[in-house]
Simulated assay, not measured.
Amino acid sequence: MLKLFITATDTDAGKTYAAQALAHAFVSKNKKVAVYKPISAGCERIHHDLVNEDALLLLAQSNCQQTITQVNPIAFEQPIAPHIAAAQLKQEINLTDIQEGYERITALETDIVICEGAGGWRLPLGQGKFLSEFVQASHQDVILVVNMKLGCLNHAVLTYQSIIADGLKCLGWIANCPEDMPYLTENISELTTLLPIPKLAVLPFDKDITKAAKRIDISLLTSLL
């Protein structure tokens, strides 16, 4: 089983978009794909349940008959830092709960589990804990999404170094290009030099996720199956 964790240089950096495209690409190759977004903030209350739009988008690309609660077990209504949202409700975000939810996903008959983080690599959970500790405990391989904007070179290198310092493998990076960035080509070229991992895709925003999926080179990843 290939276990992938999608992180990014910051929040709203394109993690969900990249994760959708990856899931679609694998499904198009007849792979069984399950998805997991353990924590979300910024949810709509539907029939007494908190439903996150990003989690729904991921669920739409999976093919393992999951429920939205399985995909996103920890959800908060306010679009704020999850540990602050939890504190306001006098709750705690527990690493054990996140791990147990993940184990239920990996117990499915699946070839690939795509797990999307929240925020950046060092998302605080409160009590001095970070979401990255869950990635370490579950031995996932990491894909880094770089939000192509001013400052991304520094953010990308620091995030990559942090992943490696945590003893994890970063399999590759994806350039997410939602806006017209000055000197975009030059910045992507510089990152290709700075990051000693493969560039898996350059993703300009496209509402058609099928087109985005076709832009991803998953040959390196499928070779691990």
Rank of each mutant, 00 (worst) to 15 (best):
Q66N: 07
L4S: 04
N176P: 08
G167C: 06
C43E: 02
L89A: 13
L191Q: 09
L108G: 03
Y102V: 04
T9A: 10
S62L: 02
G119W: 05
E190A: 15
D217Y: 04
L195M: 06
I68L: 06
T69W: 02
T210Y: 15
L200I: 08
T16R: 03
L191K: 08
I112Y: 07
I84V: 15
T192F: 01
Y36F: 14
Q70A: 07
A75M: 09
P73G: 06
E44W: 07
I98L: 11
C170F: 06
E190N: 14
C177W: 01
Q61H: 01
Q136I: 15
A201F: 09
P38R: 01
H155A: 13
K211G: 05
V51Q: 02
A87N: 11
Y36Q: 02
L200W: 05
A175Y: 04
S223W: 02
K3I: 03
D217H: 07
P79F: 05
I84K: 10
L158E: 07
L58A: 05
A156R: 06
H47T: 08
H24D: 13
G120M: 07
K149R: 15
T106N: 08
T67F: 06
N187Q: 13
V157M: 15
D10V: 03
C170K: 06
L2D: 00
H155L: 10
M181K: 04
H139L: 10
A137F: 01
K169F: 10
I174H: 06
L195C: 09
A55N: 00
Q70S: 05
W121P: 08
G101P: 07
H155I: 10
I68Q: 05
L108F: 06
Q127N: 15
L22K: 04
S40V: 00
T69H: 11
N72H: 07
D166L: 14
E77S: 13
N147I: 09
V142P: 00
T9I: 10
V27W: 04
L220G: 12
E133W: 05
P82Q: 07
C177G: 02
V113A: 10
R215G: 10
V135S: 04
P79A: 11
Y36E: 01
P38L: 03
